[in-house]
Design a protein around this nucleic acid. Structure first.
Lengths: 247, 247
DNA sequence: TAGCGGTATGCTGTAGGCAGTCGACTAAAT
DNA sequence: ATTTAGTCGACTGCCTACAGCATACCGCTA
């Protein structure tokens, strides 16, 4: 047996990724955004981020451009990068698209998922329920993402899966603070979904997934009602004051 | 009246955009790919492209990364960029996703499109039919894209529209050589679609759009049958031979 | 006093350069 | 003859430097 063969089987991801600097910067900035250290609408100065992360401007630039492509930051030519300001309409649209993609994924998964796939789904589901029961919100959210990602993967349509994954990542930005609300109900729906997939009932799987994502959407909109968002801090701005004291 | 007011009304796009170099490079490389000057699987050397386009490596790098995000090239860390090799499965999956997105767009468009939207659709449709009748394939394909883009725009869901546009651009890469086949039939379906949208019949609009995209898909697969693709030239390679004659 | 043009400043966009790394080719040993 | 170690070459990844530009500040003028 050739070494390459067994490597191909065993290690889906060959190495722990020494990771190019660019990727590390991307993740770092994403983390800064979701954690709220970088606020929506804020002007991201390349040199500042570079110094903050201890790298040169180049990786930062490239990271910002990729993040622009994924909808995390807006790139105004000649002015720089700004953290994307999520509007309510956009969140609603994003959730609608997610519902569409995931519903189709569930339908296809019901057609194509094998025994092994279902087994892995059940493992994730059990882990998620355990996380909820022990009030570990962060782990629950992560497992939720994993489960949805696995469903899309089991659809057999990798293009669909990648698109869904991209949308899901953006949704997660809004979704995280709301996750606690839904809690257990969400995982009961997951269980029902897996049952439908195992039975190969594509119609039921699609229906459950649609209901499920709609529940999440409703939950989000409800949350948004109570917390009506800051009015509109500043769509664009640039260059910080020379002497902060004088202002 | 302030100058900015009338400017805001008149010029939606303020300036003809001298465009940043990066964007120009992106379009140039896309053009090189669709025109076949850069073949699938080919190793794209940054310095060569830079010299070819008369710019520095930096804009080329950034362009390659964005193109990677859009699925045009594959970026192997430490090895460089390669033109993406489109497989049959992937094309099928892409067309399936497009069908999904555009069907939903048509459904929403039937709900939200106003008189003005329908009027613009009819204009495009007329232009497309004229193009087909005068055998102007290129113009027909372009108009086709415009019409589909307008339908997604009329859906009122900009996230959906952007996603669909991205997928459509990639589809167009495969689709262009096939476009001649479908010809007139495609535009008759367009007309029916617009009728449904005008009537506000979301179910019928969705149905027609699904049929329409499925026809395109079938047409593509059929075409692909006759021309079974080169086997698999070279998944990865690097560094061109010192003496090209020996090969 | 209010509007307007001039000037200064810092940021982005682009270019060039250097070191690390990966692949291919060559030579030696089994 | 096939495998294995060594060397060379080239390309990528990253850093630094420079030019252009957009904004903010400030003095001038009406």
């Amino acid at each position: 047996m050739l070494l390459s063969d067994q490597a191909g089987q065993a290690a889906a991801t060959k190495i722990p990724r020494p990771a190019t600097l660019r990727e590390s910067v991307i993740e770092a900035i994403q983390e800064l955004i979701v954690s709220g250290q970088l606020k929506p609408g804020q002007h991201l100065v390349e040199s500042e981020l570079a110094q903050l992360l201890g790298v040169s401007r180049q990786p930062v630039r490239e990271a910002l451009q990729q993040l622009n492509g994924e909808g995390w930051v807006d790139l105004h030519p000649g002015q720089g990068a700004f953290v994307h300001v999520p509007t309510v309409e956009e969140a609603d649209q994003l959730l609608a698209v997610r519902a569409l993609l995931e519903t189709e994924s569930a339908r296809l998964a019901a057609q194509h998922a094998g025994e092994d796939g279902v087994r892995r789904l059940r493992v994730l589901c059990a882990r998620g329920i355990a996380a909820v029961e022990s009030d570990d919100v962060e782990s629950a959210v992560a497992t939720n993402s994993e489960l949805h990602a696995l469903v899309t993967a089991l659809s057999g349509n990798s293009v669909l899966a990648e698109l869904a994954s991209q949308v899901a990542r953006r949704v997660r930005w809004y979704h995280t603070p709301v996750a606690r609300q839904r809690g257990m109900a969400s995982w009961q729906e997951h269980t029902a979904l897996i049952d439908a997939i195992e039975a190969g009932d594509e119609h039921r799987a699609a229906h459950i997934m649609r209901e499920h994502t709609e529940h999440t959407r409703a939950s989000y909109m409800e949350q948004r009602e109570n917390e009506p968002v800051e009015p509109a801090p500043k769509p664009v701005r640039r260059r910080r004051p020379r002497t902060p004291s004088t202002n």
